[in-house]
């Protein structure tokens, strides 16, 4: 049984359809990166999953439990971190965690230990007795993460956990997410920026205007979207014309583009075939300065997939 399952999930606001029939399944241990520009419907989807919004139609299940039918049961399974949240004034860090532990019905005797553990994980131990509103933005973000962990949920829903943070705090959040991954949590993490998620997600979904455009394991998506590799070839000025003419006739080359000093080749062959391109160039008398496979990352996928669709 999948741990998280969305079937044709749809949310309509008065005049606007924010999420249009979204389907998705996640297995235990998956880290799902939910990527899309602002206003794409990430928060709306996550909130429906978190039992904060009622879906207009469709089904969302966590651990087999329908979110709309039994929200109470789902709530103990999920830890939700909103994209924008506040903290109580006049409240100390440990009191904040104790409050939520109590609200999640964690037995009184277990609380101090759990609080210390959560603080340790989020490296906030020193701030235990500090007032919450005196924390920096990054610390508040980590405190909120600590709060989502306090009742040991199976699924974490993190809505833009690193937004608005400086680079250092971003890295800290990333490290924290890696630790959570190591702990075996299933995580849905959203972001409008890709590199943020690239290194620790097992799968990603790109959402735009309420529709999931592509979803799946990262490698599979790369293949699906790019259909292969991109080769970057650098040749001297005088040979450039020759190379441009010659390349399209090589097997598996789909297109050649000149970008500044380099030629960019979309290549659909295997890694072994790739050397044929270099061979063909050299046989053709082209002096090759460099020949490299371009690092394709999520950024490219994102740009390709969402090209022209951004509102």
């Amino acid at each position: 049984m999948p741990l998280v399952e969305l079937v044709n999930l749809r949310k309509e606001y008065k005049t606007l359809v924010a999420v249009k029939g979204l389907s998705l399944t996640l297995e235990p241990g998956d880290i799902f990166g939910f990527i899309g520009p602002n206003g794409a419907g990430k928060t709306t989807t996550i909130k429906m999953l978190a039992t904060l919004l009622e879906p207009t139609s469709g089904i969302a299940r966590v651990n087999g439990i329908n979110v709309a039918e039994n929200p109470e049961a789902v709530r103990s399974l999920i830890g939700y971190m909103p994209d924008a949240f506040g903290v109580y004034d006049d409240f100390k860090v440990w009191e904040y965690l104790d409050f939520f532990a109590a609200a999640y019905k964690v037995p009184k005797i277990d609380r101090p230990g759990l609080i210390d553990m959560a603080l340790d994980l989020t490296t906030l131990t020193e701030k235990k007795d500090a007032y919450v509103d005196e924390l920096s933005r990054g610390m508040k973000q980590r405190l909120c993460l600590a709060k989502t962990l306090i009742h040991d949920p199976k699924v974490l829903l993190l809505d833009e956990p690193a937004s608005g943070l400086d680079p250092r705090a971003r890295i800290e959040i990333k490290e924290l997410l890696k630790e959570l991954k190591a702990m075996g949590k299933t995580i849905i993490v959203s972001s409008h920026i890709l590199p943020e998620l690239a290194d620790f997600c097992t799968s990603v979904g790109i959402i735009e205007r309420g529709e999931l455009i592509v979803a799946g394991p990262i490698e599979a998506i790369m293949k699906q979207v790019l259909g292969g590799r991109v080769l970057e070839i650098r040749v001297p000025d005088i040979d450039r014309e020759k190379a441009t003419a010659l390349l399209p006739s090589v097997e598996h080359v789909k297109s050649v583009k000149r970008i500044g000093e380099t030629l960019r080749v979309d290549y659909s062959g295997t890694l072994d075939d790739q050397s044929e391109v270099l061979l063909a160039l050299i046989h053709g008398g082209v002096r090759v300065q460099s020949f490299a496979e371009q690092d394709t990352d999520l950024e490219d996928i994102f740009l390709r997939v969402t090209k022209g669709l951004v509102a």
Binding site: A50, L52, S76, Y80, G86, V87, F100, A103, C144, K147
Partner: peptide, 13 residues
């Protein structure tokens, strides 16, 4: 207004 309500209402309270 302080955006604390969502978290509160999500708990098992």
């Amino acid at each position: 207004e302080q955006r604390t309500y969502d978290l509160l209402s999500l708990s098992l309270l």
